[in-house]
Nucleic acid binder design. Sequence first.
DNA 1: CACAGCATGTCAGTGACAGACATCGTGGGG
DNA 2: CCCCACGATGTCTGTCACTGACATGCTGTG
Lengths: 207, 207
Amino acid sequence: MSVTDIVGEDRRLLLMGRWLPDAHGRLARAALELYSERGFEQTTALEIAERAGVTERTFFRYFADKREVLFQGSQELQRIILEAIAQTPADVRPVDAVIAAIDTVGGLVFDRAHSVRRATIIAANPALQERELLKFSTLTASVAGALRERGVAEPSATLAAETGVTVFKIGFERWITGTPSEDWAECIRDTVRQLRDVTPSLIVSQV
Amino acid sequence: MSVTDIVGEDRRLLLMGRWLPDAHGRLARAALELYSERGFEQTTALEIAERAGVTERTFFRYFADKREVLFQGSQELQRIILEAIAQTPADVRPVDAVIAAIDTVGGLVFDRAHSVRRATIIAANPALQERELLKFSTLTASVAGALRERGVAEPSATLAAETGVTVFKIGFERWITGTPSEDWAECIRDTVRQLRDVTPSLIVSQV
DNA sequence: CACAGCATGTCAGTGACAGACATCGTGGGG
DNA sequence: CCCCACGATGTCTGTCACTGACATGCTGTG
């Protein structure tokens, strides 16, 4: 039995017999590239792994599933928003606290080019849209939780959270699709302005 | 070669050699039962098919995927809401038109016991929640489209749609979890009342 | 120098789907 | 009355996402 029999065809231990560092990063980059090049569905986990120089199994050790690669940041985003809400003075109204928090995450978290690339991939695939929606829903739920911590009662907490996240979604959409020069705070403020005009009347018309 | 060799073990052609009718209905019922009994993930498509007396392949001819069984009605719901919006007088404000439409679908579409059963199944599984979210998102998009038909400009149309669908979601949630006697219109009206208190201020506080 | 531990590879398996083709009653046209 | 196109289904085979169990090889530590 020769050395090559023992080592096999394994070309992955390059750095003086040690694993290449940052498998996670290489996988994320490889996935992004392939999703862009040929689309999400047309990309197999095996292909991603090969481009990253690891096995399929390793891909699934880093990412719960194929889609998760694109949603790494959302946990971080949520953490920041929650923290911002917690730090807002107690006398600020719930919705305003949420919107102020959203306002702060702007330049902080995203790089516009990356966001556009990501949004393009997601827009092309329903399964990815579902996952995005789930992230928003999770965010809404935890924002509502944060408001309850501040003493806001229940239907209002969820309503305010839902409203705030809607502002985020639409503001974000605008930030992505609009002129590159327009900044985050601007998009959010404009969306809020528009929102103020859609308050429903109390009387539901009977059809 | 005997008759049984030709017919094989096929016990499915029962009605005088013809297929049993309503394969679709049998599949839907079988799926509902199994999802309730042992949960969504613990149920395989094969098991559903067997209980319905057909093959796995036939299941996938009727339903795009395992989840779709639970979301049959949403297309009908959307159709009704859109129609109601179209029939609302042109001078009614966008949000009010949406909410009025939502108000009308109440007793019409759902049977409460069935809704509760369905909601229980969905609540127990993230993959199903994703699908539900996608349906809401689709609904929002088409409601926004209907408002645009009425001449509502773009950021407002989506905002109003999003607001209306939020009222639907939260009102529905309340209708499901609250006391069985409380009726649909009641839930919607109360939710609207609460919503009116969460209008954001114009000035976003700078943190 | 032995040994525990971590990051990875290897192998085998399950289950969701999809394409291609075969089968068998049914209903209409000759 | 027969033939044939058709519709609903079964059968077979394949691909791919994901998972559990186990093996391997380096690395730092006592």
